[in-house]
Design a protein around this nucleic acid. Structure first.
Lengths: 109, 109
DNA sequence: GCGATACATTGGCGGTTGTCGATGTACAAT
DNA sequence: ATTGTACATCGACAACCGCCAATGTATCGC
């Protein structure tokens, strides 16, 4: 606990390469990139982006992982602000967070 | 071992969001993002980018880490292809690999 | 109510990672 | 040759991560 929400804070600095990076910002950015540092989460992100909107039950099959593992990865991506979840009935629907991804992309500018 | 060079292979797919991601590519990309998933390495990358060229000895002080730890992180970034090292005399000089960083940025497009 | 479904959480297991002290290697100056 | 410097490697430790079985929680249909 007490760690899951750190990465969601707004990234202050537009680019790594054009300005010195403060320790605090580095920690937040590291958490965000850590969310991308797993092949299952990258493919999950790709699947969600392709479909526009996907429920968790439709992720187990193509990713070849158990239901708790899928839940673990969706939570990691959601905590990092990369996907957004909305519960409708029994299903959890996931969409990508394009502005968040764009801000990460800007860091590599 | 036998893992350090995996991430250096050329990334095939331009964007995560516009095409389905194959497992093999996901593994390579995950390694690359893992190199960015550490606050010390992000600040190290920022320092190298700012200075254009830095030797390892000038990294210990601003990063506040021991010499073996700096060496560990420079190796991680170099293995991921994000920085390039050149030994001149006793010093190891580091520069960023802009095209490699650009290819990572393109994945988030 | 009851059972079934979709998802979250817990607990535990191996594997990985960040860190530093100690040690090794390469180079340069004297 | 000897000494000092810059960096790499090794060994060990604590912390973290991905994974799954088991269990818990919420929702729907009957």
């Amino acid at each position: 606990m007490a760690k899951t929400k750190v990465a969601v804070s707004k990234e202050c600095c537009s680019s790594l390469l054009s300005a010195p990076l403060a320790e605090t910002d580095a920690i937040g950015l590291a958490h965000a990139f850590a969310a991308l540092a797993d092949p299952v989460r990258l493919r999950l992100l790709s699947l969600v982006a392709q479909a526009g909107e996907v429920c968790s039950c439709d992720l187990e099959r193509p990713l070849g992982k158990s239901q708790p593992t899928i839940s673990h990865h969706t939570k990691a991506l959601a905590d990092a602000g990369l996907i957004i979840g909305e519960k409708r009935g029994r299903w959890m629907w996931w969409t990508i967070a394009p502005d968040r991804i764009a801000s990460l992309r800007a860091v590599l500018a």
